[in-house]
Amino acid sequence: MHIVVCAKQIPDPETPPSAFKIDAATNKVVPAQGIAPVLSQFDAIAAEAALRIKEAGGEGKVTVISMGAESAQAAIKQVLAMGADEGVLLNDPAFEDGDSHTTAKVLASAIQKLGDVDAVFCGRQAADWDMGQVGLLIAEILDWPVATIAKGASLEGETLSVERVLADGFETVQVPFPAVVTVSNEFGEPRYPKLPQIMAAAKKTVTQMKAGDLGLDPSEVGKAGSRLQLQKLFIPEKGAQVEFIAGDTPQEQAAALVSKLRADKLI
């Protein structure tokens, strides 16, 4: 059993709002001072799910793949420390500023290059853009079945049994290998790495691949290959101050609050 975990390094989602800044000229988030990027939490959970399957099966291999800059090594090392066996960094300036489609293309190419992969585990979405597309697109590109938003996954004979979160409960699906699974936070907390594994991970070499290694032309990846085009990234106007709901009676207050919430499309 060879499972690939796709991991993304993202700006810390817990950056305090006051430190969250956007450069309007480039439509990019300005890295906050002293706040390092982190591994997207959903991807850490996906790694946890993959590792549990490997451990339940007794043998196998987990490879973590990340597309990103050199700094994404940290995210890869984190998954290696959790117990993954190998790491691959897809680092090429040509990959930058792509959309879900180009990202999935790069990742799927790498998975195909690895060759013997039985399953791909992704987070349900990256915790920065929250799109939730890449896992599904990898499945489409590879023409593998996919089970999304998993809160549980286990081996059942030759197939994978996945519990999926639905709006009104959950369902259990069976998926033949090879397959793609996207994992949700309901799965549970990712493990805390053991120090011996942290040390082992620190010593591991991460394989680096570029567009050429994957047989990809720079024109079909990154910004050049994107179909979804970002026009503007901005911080929405916020009422800086609390707005106290006026009203002489609780009924008046309630009515005023409900109309505000409806206007905001919150209810």
């Binding site: 810390d12 817990e14 006051s18 907390e189 493990r191 053991k194």
Partner: peptide, 27 residues
């Protein structure tokens, strides 16, 4: 690596953010 979940959260926060206060909105 056997730690109560919330303590683990604090430790992970220390590693990632240099402070133990998960979820703070202050700088």
């Amino acid at each position: 690596a056997r730690i109560p979940a919330t303590a683990q959260g604090a430790l992970e926060n220390l590693e990632m953010r240099g402070h133990p206060w998960r979820g703070t909105s202050l700088e």
